[in-house]
């Protein structure tokens, strides 16, 4: 029944070709070079939008995956953290003239506090009720933001002055934004890689796979869940701030929408939950597709991209439950000539 006994305990020191947990591979290095190439190359402005959004959503998908993939905390409410992060840095900039370079940290921190609060609210909930609570939580935040007009601008939203300047983190060139988003993606990726090779990362796997066993091994499950959700929310909040700096406009009905929450969960699910490369691949596949559909059909078919997304997700879930990363791993084990 068991394949072969002798699995070597000594790890080979060479760099693996395909991604492995906790180690850097050629695949990732080449992908990074391709990303840098895409930023440097002179390409049409509309395509640049697609590229930098793929970076941003890749980072956001990775952030979601820390809670959803590693700790098993499936959230359909991450748009709340995205919105909180975006609103915090933007309010600090617009109302108090504080540079987003500082505001982003506040955005991340407050989003992290929201994340911890959500984890504690849902301390006793598992499965579907946990998921629905995240959804309800985000809706409460959205309606709150809509009604607290003095702070958020309510339904009219909040705009950032489109005057370029380093201090206000507003740039004239899309290439600069592309660097910014790529930087975000790389940072979140590095955090994810460090996490999955760390003791804390293992604690999260344990809590996800069997909470009773984790607890019997001395792991505090509630603390692990809370920290994982806080970290995931904080990184999502930073992504929200960057989004605000790029679009220069925030409005609760988009930035805290259930659709956006769904998108954050969809990208890792398609790419491969609980892997570092999965969410990135998911974003690189889905984000361009969605932008393409949006630009092709425009507003004449509102919701069409979500129709296609959701159909795709059903197919992926039923037939490739381990996503693109799983397919990649299968490819790595494929030995056509042996």
């Amino acid at each position: 029944m068991l394949v072969t006994g002798a699995v070597s305990t000594k790890k080979p020191m060479r760099v693996p070709i395909l991604p492995e947990r906790g180690r850097l591979s050629w695949f990732e290095l080449v992908l990074l070079l391709v990303c840098i190439g895409l930023v440097v190359a002179s390409i049409p402005s509309s395509l640049r939008d697609v590229i930098l959004l793929s970076f941003l959503f890749g980072g956001l998908a990775l952030a979601w995956n820390i809670a959803g993939g590693y700790a098993g905390l499936i959230s359909f409410g991450h748009a709340a953290f995205f919105g909180v992060g975006g609103y915090t840095s933007t309010i600090l900039l617009v109302h108090y003239d504080i540079t987003p370079w500082i505001g982003i940290w506040f955005g991340g921190t407050i989003a992290g506090v929201f994340g911890a609060a959500l984890a504690l609210i849902c301390a006793r909930l598992r499965g579907p009720f946990f998921i629905l609570s995240t959804l309800a939580f985000a809706e409460v935040v959205r309606i709150g933001a809509l009604n607290w007009s003095s702070l958020t601008g309510g339904p009219e939203g909040l705009s950032i002055m489109p005057t370029p300047g380093l201090a206000s983190m507003v740039f004239a060139s899309k290439a600069t934004y592309a660097w910014l988003m790529l930087g975000y993606l790389v940072v979140v990726y590095a955090i994810t890689k460090a996490l999955e090779a760390s003791r804390f990362g293992y604690y999260l796997f344990a809590i996800r796979d069997n909470e009773d066993a984790a607890s019997a091994a001395g792991v505090n499950p509630l603390l692990g869940r809370t920290l994982a959700m806080a970290l995931s929310a904080a990184l999502t909040g930073v992504g929200g701030s960057l989004f605000a700096q790029y679009f220069l406009y925030l409005d609760p009905t988009y930035v805290i929408s259930p659709e956006l929450s769904f998108q954050f969960a969809l990208l890792p699910a398609v790419g491969g939950l609980g892997t570092a490369i999965g969410p990135v691949l998911g974003s690189f596949l889905i984000t361009p597709l969605s932008e393409l559909l949006r630009s092709y059909f425009g507003n004449s078919a509102a919701g069409l991209h979500l129709v296609i997304y959701s159909l795709g997700l059903v197919v992926v879930m039923l037939y490739f439950p381990s996503g693109l990363a799983g397919a990649l791993a299968k490819l790595a084990r494929w030995r056509p000539f042996s």
């Binding site: 003791r199 293992y202 796997f205 796979d209 069997n210 009773d212 066993a213 091994a217 609980g274």
Partner: peptide
């Protein structure tokens, strides 16, 4: 038995070992 389904045998035991050995 309540194993961590998505981890390997050695990783399952490592989670207990972390109680006394903090480094991976």
């Amino acid at each position: 038995p309540k194993p961590y389904r998505q981890l390997s045998v050695v990783e399952n035991v490592m989670l207990s070992a972390f109680l006394r050995e903090k480094s991976v």
